[in-house]
Structures are given as C-alpha cells and as structure tokens.
C-alpha cells in the first residue's frame, strides 16, 4: 500500500467511526460529477458557441439553463442521500467461503422519500432501495467470507445518482456489526470408529420413554402412542395398558479433537464441523471436546450453533499451550 493510500484509509477510519446507527449528513456525503456531466458540459459548450455565432439570446439562455441544471443537480443528488439513516439489526452466521448476511434498517430521518440508492460492500453485491416518504425498509446485505471466526464487514458504500445521473453522491458507513463464520464443513477420510469413544452399549445409560427395547407394562396415560398400547392385554382384561420401552444411549457421541489422527488445525476444525452437521442431521446427541473446552452432549438447533461457534472461535495458541 502506498503511503497515500494508507493515509486515505486512516482518514476514512477517523471520518467514519464504527457505530450501530449512522445518519448521513454534510460531513458524511461526498459529491462528485460523473462522466455524463462532462458530456453535458460539452453540450453546453456547443450551445454556447451556437449562441455566440448566431447571436441568439434564446440559445444563450438555454446553455446557461443547462449549466444551472448541472449545479442544482448537486443539491438534489446530495439531498437524496442526506438524512438517510442506517441501523444495524442482526447478522446470520455462515460457513467460510459462503456469504454472511446482515440485516439493516434504512429510513430517512426527516421522512423524505428517497430513490435509487445503492448500498453494498462491493460493486457486485449492491442492493437498490427506494424509500417512499415516511417509511423505513429492512434490507439484507451479503458479504463474501473467507476465514472462520468473527467477520467484520468493511465500510459500506452508499451510492446514488438520482435524479439526473449527472452527479454521484456517495458515502461510507462503518456499521458496528459482526457475524460468526463457521469453519468449512469438510470430512476427512478417517476411521469412523475412532471418533466414537464409547461405542459399546454396555456402558450406555438407560434413557426412559425410548422406543427400542421392551421394558415392561404400565397403565395407560393420556398421550401414549396407540402403537404402544398392549392390545392383547386389553382384549383379555379390558384394562388399557401400555408397553413401555427404553433406549440405551448407545448412539451418544463425543466429537473429540484428540482422537483425530490427521494433522492440521483447520482440517480438524473442518472435519469436526462436518461431523456436527452430520450428527445434527441424524438427530443424535453429541458432545464436543476441544483442547480447553468441552461441550456436554445435547441435541437441537441451538446446540449445533453453539458447537459450530466454538469451532469458529477456536484459538490455536491455547491448544498448543495445553
């Protein structure tokens, strides 16, 4: 990076400090002419020459009017951005390499209507919004990610050329929001058994109200499945009884860092992430063991996110230390 670029970055950093809510004003909005306005100036020049040569007052007027239009367009384009308020709402996690999605609320502080404003991190992911008067709108912006961990999106670009396209008004917003980026889910070709620590059913604990092994017969309770009703007994005695079953937690798994035989921290994390997804899909209970961190076996959406977050934020120094 050239010194000039670094200086510019620092200046932008100071000018646009991170914040949850940003309102664009005189200090935030930049206004520069576009190539179209250069073309307009050429037209103005042609008209002016026409006016000079034909001594035509009307053409003088026309050329001056166009020139004034260019000037007034600066104000109108600035107005289209000024007062625009962006509020960071929430972000949704993603896997590395995918796009993180951020949700923002956009409104005008004075309730003016706004048109054709483009917001986004890069030229490719611009979202165009129109804001009728006295309304706010929610937008979802996506940004590409590369690494696991916390992802801070860069400065947002906010661009508008409305109404005439002669002037471009733009601004930056450093929204104080971040998203979790999970490690890429990628299985390594390893012995499946190695990851299952306690694979024998002998050591498993009984889980009541299961579906697998017959446990005994008890009285019917409201809510028991009709399939488990002891119909033979009912035919014999007339009392409704229910067969009860137990599960052994044979399928309870530990996803353990230390049992992984292959090298590479990121590979291990990716493998574990893939296993988490697998277990979640199979609706099994699973626990996670990382150097320095242990998550007790559980299941469900929240547990999966907890595990993936732990994987995402895993810092290798501590592991080496351990």
């Amino acid at each position: 990076m050239t010194p000039w670029k670094t200086a510019r970055q620092q200046w932008l950093q100071r000018r646009f400090p991170p914040s949850r809510e940003i309102t664009l004003g005189l200090r935030q909005v930049f206004v520069i002419p576009t190539a179209t306005s250069a073309a307009l100036l050429v037209a103005v020049l042609i008209l002016f020459l026409m006016a000079v040569n034909f001594q035509s007052a009307l053409i003088y007027g026309l050329s001056f009017w166009l020139l004034a239009l260019l000037v007034v367009a600066i104000f109108f384009t600035y107005r289209n951005l000024s007062g625009l308020t962006l509020t960071a709402l929430r972000s949704s996690p993603c896997f590395a390499g995918e796009k993180a999605v951020f949700e923002l609320r956009v409104e005008d502080i004075a309730g003016r209507s706004k048109q054709a404003i483009f917001i986004g991190w890069s030229d490719e992911d611009l979202v165009e919004i129109d804001l009728p008067a006295d309304t706010s709108t929610l937008i979802k912006l996506s940004a590409p990610t590369r690494q696991r961990g916390y992802f801070h999106p860069g400065r947002l670009q906010i661009v508008s050329r409305y109404p005439l396209g002669l002037i471009v008004a733009f601004s930056y917003a450093q929204l104080d929001m971040k998203s979790i980026v999970y490690p890429v889910a990628r299985l390594q070709p390893v012995n499946e058994q190695a990851t299952l620590v306690h694979s024998s059913s002998e050591g498993g604990a009984e889980v009541p109200r299961g579906t697998t092994d017959f446990d005994g017969v008890r009285n019917y309770q409201a809510g028991d499945s009709p399939r488990h009703i002891h119909w033979k007994n009912y035919a014999r005695t007339g009392n409704i009884t229910t067969k009860s079953f137990v599960d052994f937690s044979v399928h309870e798994r530990w996803l353990d860092w230390d049992t992984l035989s292959f090298a590479g921290i990121e590979n291990k994390l990716s493998h574990l992430a893939a296993r988490v997804l697998q277990c979640h899909q199979e609706q099994q209970e699973y626990g996670l063991k990382l150097p320095g961190t242990t998550l007790q076996p559980d299941q469900g959406e929240a547990h999966m996110h907890r595990c993936l977050t732990t994987l995402a934020l895993y810092a290798p120094e501590t592991s080496e230390h351990a």
Binding site: V52, A57, G61, F64, L67, A68, V71, P163
Partner: peptide, 27 residues
Amino acid sequence: MLLLCLPLMITFFVFTPRFSPLWTFTL
C-alpha cells in the same frame, strides 16, 4: 429542478459577457 435553476440561469444570462461571432455560418 428547472424552476430552481431559473435564478442562476438569469444571473448567467445577465452577467456573462457577450462575444462577437467566431465564424460565419450560412443561415
């Protein structure tokens, strides 16, 4: 927009110096 331009246009119209024709044209 055009209406707001008017005062500036009139300013230009009144004050910009007038030049004599640079070359002649067939009318």
